[in-house]
């Protein structure tokens, strides 16, 4: 085991994937000479050269479409969209092209592309550089969406995404890029769609992904001090998501809270809550409570952003509500 940072784990995954498969290449704004706006692609241009690492002009729709076309022509592109907010400009290529090619063409082929992009606040980056838009993508049949919550997962989920024959959006979290964590000698092989029990508990289940996992773990600590054992599930992948794992946990704890940094309304949490209210109805001893951002653009200023993002206190309050 060695300690690493989230961003370094992303870099290592890209480096290893490029070493293992000559069809893997990188494309994005400033991913080459500059090593990426957040340094996820540092040194990779030197290592693999300009035929594998493309510094693209500011053209998100084209970057994404180029990834689709290259993927349909035998390559494994890994595109970077600098901030998830800019994915608005990539939407046609993701939604109408990448997502549909396999089904729409009758299974003739697939689109083995990856799109990496960071979401989330905590940097006072303001309303156009902080959004968590993963629910949009999770809503589209044909796309997969993973959201790593720690350095080891950042490595393993990115490797799994690159190995996957279908388009996978890897949503990283800007606030986690500096996070330190253990990186196993032999990285775990993660199957996309399988969740991880981040903390075991018998009294209530908190389902979270990305940065919300850490918040949920902190909330579980608070509750543990009061003798309430909270189970924290790190979804790892929101599309597909591990319904069986959540249901199994709920059938032991009988109380459910779902947390994400994204706006609460119409989010991933709504889907999880709806499914569990259906297939897990008999297991529920309390309401399913969601914790997410309020229905407002993510604000810039420190006090506002702090109040906007979910935190351990709000998760604790949600747990108290469902357990009441």
């Amino acid at each position: 085991m060695a300690e690493t940072r989230y961003i370094k784990a992303v870099n290592q995954a890209l480096k290893d994937a490029m070493r293992d498969d000559p069809t893997v290449f990188l494309i994005g704004e400033d991913v080459g000479a500059a090593g990426g706006s957040f340094k996820a692609t540092r040194d990779l241009l030197d290592l693999y050269g300009p035929e594998r690492v493309y510094d693209a002009p500011i053209a998100e729709a084209a970057i994404t479409g180029i990834a689709v076309g290259a993927a349909l022509t035998g390559m494994k592109p890994v595109a970077e969209i600098m901030f998830m907010d800019f994915i608005t400009l990539s939407m046609d290529m993701l939604v109408n092209q990448a997502a549909k090619a396999r089904s729409m063409f009758g299974g003739q082929g697939s689109v083995p592309m990856v799109l990496r992009t960071p979401h989330g606040g905590g940097l006072n980056a303001g309303p156009q550089h902080s959004q968590c838009l993963e629910a949009w993508l999770a809503h589209v049949p044909g796309l997969k969406v993973v959201v790593p919550s720690n350095p080891a997962d950042a490595y393993s989920l990115l490797r799994a995404a690159i190995d996957d024959p279908d388009p996978v959006i890897v949503v990283e979290n800007k606030a986690l890029y500096a996070m330190k964590g253990e990186m196993p000698e032999t990285p775990e092989k993660i199957e996309i769609g399988k969740a991880r029990i981040a903390r075991a508990g018998r009294d209530a289940t908190v389902v979270a992904y990305g940065a919300a996992v850490g918040m949920a773990e902190a909330a579980a600590e608070v509750m543990a001090a009061e003798g309430v054992e909270v189970e924290v599930i790190d979804l790892r992948s929101v599309q597909p998501w591990d319904e069986a794992c959540v249901l199994e946990s709920l059938s032991r704890t009988h109380n459910l809270v779902v947390v994400h940094e994204a706006v609460e309304a119409f989010g991933v949490g709504a889907e999880i809550a709806a499914r569990m209210a259906d297939i897990g109805f008999d297991e529920l001893d309390g309401p399913i409570v969601r914790v997410g951002a309020p229905f407002a653009p993510s604000p810039f200023g420190k006090t506002l952003e702090e109040a906007y993002r979910p935190n351990a206190d709000r998760i604790v309050a949600a747990l108290r509500r469902t357990l009441a």
Binding site: A62, T64, A71, M75, M93
Partner: peptide
């Protein structure tokens, strides 16, 4: 929509 897809295909051909 065919333009970027084909641009990507051309990039693959070049590589």
């Amino acid at each position: 929509a065919g333009l970027p897809i084909t641009t990507g295909s051309a990039l693959a051909h070049r590589m």
